[in-house]
Design a protein around this nucleic acid. Structure first.
Lengths: 213, 213
DNA sequence: TAGATTGTTAATCGATTAACAATC
DNA sequence: TAGATTGTTAATCGATTAACAATC
């Protein structure tokens, strides 16, 4: 099961299937075809089958996939059976929004600590979490056994924050700053600079409007 | 200039170059090679040259690219010379964060209206913007001549919001909900469900830790 | 002229899609 | 058995990378 090379595009689609299946489970749909799952997610059915086939044979020919079984397989494949304690650095607008982000709790993910360097922000509460000062970051990361760090600080501070997170034991970084971070190869880095997404959208919008359609 | 087919991956990288160039301009770097721009962005130099070549010849052989000239070209290519008035639907944590998102203003982008259906939220202020009720969405979109709508509502409400935005004249949708939206083909849709990103990160983190590296 | 770096071609690599035998 | 749908192969399509002639 899964030791040969899996396309990174496939990995990006697994969460989409997983979410769709959670929704179907809630609505008590028991069996679903690759075609129907594809329609619900906007992914062609051949792609759905191929993606799943990298991890095993989860369906029954002539029938389809049993929703709850497939959902549990994906939960395991995605690593969502473990807890993933997280810390957030930066309690600005975005950092605060992420602390309370419903998408986390729904998947059993929890923010355990939030740090900020601004003395006016330290000591305030977000939800029921106290914003802490940067000097205790290392200690708190170890206490919480956090492996995952979210960077929501300005570009200028991002590399230094990344370095400190990694030294403190963080293994995966979700980087919302626009800075290109240098990290050791064993650290998993994901960039989520929102303005990149917006600019790409505007690019398409601009040409669409120019074309007059 | 640009009528044949440009890879979508290229379009995703243009904002990254643009941001990097803005930073260099600020630091008064005048000329940059594809190699140096690549190092600053984590993109191979051959890729940088190829991406730019789809839009014209912006460099000088043996010399490199003049930072301010290339930056202006990218600004135009990305459509950032126009104003793009935006509206946000959903004044929850994420919606509020996006209203104040520094990444917008820095690129001349402005949120002109925010809507929410919760009567306890309507009338409150985010920054200096009053949260308005959904019944005046259509009118306000037309007043502001907004072409771009941001959806930051729960999954259940997302499709209905999208339909109303489109009817009111919105041409591009930035969808932060996990819902797969059905939109007419002339509408530009970009999905930015953050939990997808997080789950993909956890997938890699999980296997990285299993491998013990 | 010598050294540097672009713009572009061609080769390589990777992902998607179509099609169908297997099988429920 | 007839109809449906998977899992997988092979063909197609698209993106990246290497290499180098053009040229500053």
């Amino acid at each position: 099961m899964k030791s040969f090379k899996i396309p990174r595009t496939t990995v990006e689609r697994l969460p989409i299937y997983y979410r769709a299946l959670l929704g179907m489970e809630k609505r008590e749909i028991e069996v679903i075809s690759s075609q129907a799952l594809g329609e619900r997610t906007g992914i062609p059915s051949a792609q759905v089958r191929k993606d799943l086939s990298y991890y095993g044979e989860f369906g029954r020919r002539g029938v389809g996939y049993e929703v709850s079984i497939l959902r549990r397989h994906l939960q395991k494949i995605l690593g969502l059976e473990r807890d993933w304690p997280m810390v957030i650095v930066g309690a600005g607008n975005l950092g605060r929004a992420l602390v309370n982000y419903q998408g986390f709790l729904r998947h059993g993910l929890e923010v355990r600590a939030v740090f900020d360097s601004d003395p006016r922000v330290i000591g305030t509460y977000i939800h029921n979490l106290r914003v802490e000062g940067p000097e205790i970051m290392e200690q708190r990361i170890q206490e919480e056994e956090a492996h995952l760090g979210i960077i929501a600080v300005p570009a200028e501070a991002a590399q230094e924050v990344a370095d400190r997170l990694i030294t403190a034991g963080i293994r995966g970084i979700w980087n919302f700053s626009p800075e290109h971070l240098r990290v050791p190869q064993e650290v998993i880095l994901r960039n989520e600079d929102l303005s990149v997404g917006l600019m790409a959208l505007i690019y398409h919008l601009n040409y669409s409007i120019d074309r007059g359609d």
